[in-house]
Computed example of a mutant assay.
Amino acid sequence: MAMELKLSTNLKMSQKLVMTPMLQQAIKLLPLARLELAQQVRQEITENPVLEEIIEEDELQDETETDEEAEIAEPKENFEVIDEKNKGEEHTLENPDMDWDTYFQDNIDRGSSAENYTEQPTIETTHQKEPSLQEHLLWQLNLSVDNDRMSFIGSCIIGNINADGYLNANINDIGEISHADESEVLTVLKIIQEFEPLGVGARSLQECLKIQAQADENCTPLVLKLIENYLDRLEERYLAKVSSELNVRIESILEAIKKIKRYNPKPGQTFNSERIDYVVPDIFVIKTENGYDVTLNDDGIPRLRISPYYQNLLKNSAKGETKDYLEEKHKSALWFLKSIDQRRQTIHKVGK
């Protein structure tokens, strides 16, 4: 039996979900952490001139101007829904997809700002890089010495100070590295040992405590004597013998030991560069009189708006490359603003 081949035309109707660019952008923004979102927002401000950050003074001025404007149409909230009446119309300021000036004010169930409840630290404060021990010592060295030779010797010494604040290298080794005499190295080391934190640059625990004791106005001669001669014998079982040798009452020795315990045996630890970066939440759950309420944490995330300058420029510019460019950036800015607000609504609803 012969097979017959022929061409035919069929009409088929089907429904499928299409990912619009605006929906794709909203999905990309949704899983971002607060820091990542803040970086994305600042990058968008850099790339899109139509977007600008809202400053408090500008926000107060805009609120005054908004009160004087006429009523504006109700905004749309669905990504996929397209108004068939305006489908063939061009996207311009005279015929926008939605009114973004009132969208964020009229949109319900988006939560209140956490600033109404507690004052949160700024992102610059929470993520500020603390200076290391070496950086702090070099800064003090530059203020203390006035010639390059002593500065170089001091940098060699500071480079050999460990995280606890102790000098790990020998004086002779530092002298060979810096091409200096032992007396010069000791002179500079003496200067460094007067820096903050007290006790830094010491070569032993005894020297570290002695430096701090000499700088203490309330230090007694007994404290210095215990540090210099009896530091390894300050346990309770040796106190009677130490009291007999010094011809001092045990009570006085106990008071001196209390002062020694106040000194820091590891002064460099106060400038430990390893710090804990705590996770900053996207929402806060706050107890109220009626139960619990969920608020959004917008601290550190720039607040955006469409630049009035570029709005007027787009409205008054003639058709051409400039107008096409502004319309493209204006539409991209609207998408970005709505994606951010959609993210806020989603997080608030999930948290609630």
Rank of each mutant, 00 (worst) to 15 (best):
L5E: 13
T9P: 00
N10F: 13
L11A: 12
K12F: 12
S14D: 11
S14L: 11
Q15H: 12
M19P: 06
M22Q: 15
L23R: 14
A26Q: 09
L29P: 07
P31L: 03
R34L: 09
A38D: 10
Q43T: 14
E44H: 10
E44S: 14
I45K: 14
E47T: 13
N48M: 08
I54S: 10
E56S: 12
E56K: 12
D67L: 15
E68F: 10
E69W: 08
E69H: 08
I72L: 15
K76H: 12
F79P: 01
E80W: 12
V81L: 07
E84C: 05
K87R: 13
G88M: 10
N95Q: 06
N95M: 02
D97C: 06
M98Y: 13
D101I: 10
T102W: 07
N107M: 15
I108R: 14
R110S: 11
R110F: 11
G111D: 03
E115P: 00
E115Y: 04
T122Y: 07
I123F: 15
T126Y: 05
L133Y: 07
L133S: 09
H136R: 14
W139V: 14
N142P: 07
L143P: 04
N147Y: 02
D148M: 05
F152N: 10
G154R: 01
S155G: 07
I157T: 03
D164G: 02
N170D: 14
N170P: 03
D173T: 09
D173V: 01
D173H: 08
I174C: 01
G175K: 00
A180N: 01
A180E: 00
E184F: 00
E194C: 09
F195A: 02
V200M: 01
G201W: 03
L205F: 11
C208R: 05
L209Q: 01
I211R: 08
A213V: 10
A213I: 04
A215N: 09
D216E: 06
E217P: 04
E217S: 12
L222M: 08
L226S: 08
N229M: 08
Y230F: 15
Y230P: 10
Y230G: 05
R233G: 07
R233N: 11
R233E: 15
E236Q: 13
Y238R: 06
Y238V: 04
A240C: 00
K241G: 07
S244F: 08
N247V: 11
V248I: 12
R249I: 06
R249S: 15
I250H: 04
S252D: 13
S252N: 13
K258N: 04
P265E: 01
P265S: 04
Q269N: 11
R275T: 14
Y278E: 05
V279M: 05
F284H: 11
V285Y: 04
V285C: 05
K287Y: 00
T288G: 02
E289N: 09
Y292Q: 13
Y292S: 11
Y292M: 07
L296T: 08
L296A: 09
R303F: 09
L304F: 02
P308L: 06
Y310W: 14
Q311F: 08
Q311C: 13
N312A: 12
K315S: 14
S317I: 15
A318Q: 15
A318P: 09
E321N: 14
E327C: 03
K329T: 05
K329R: 14
Q342R: 13
T346A: 13
T346S: 08
H348C: 03
V350N: 03
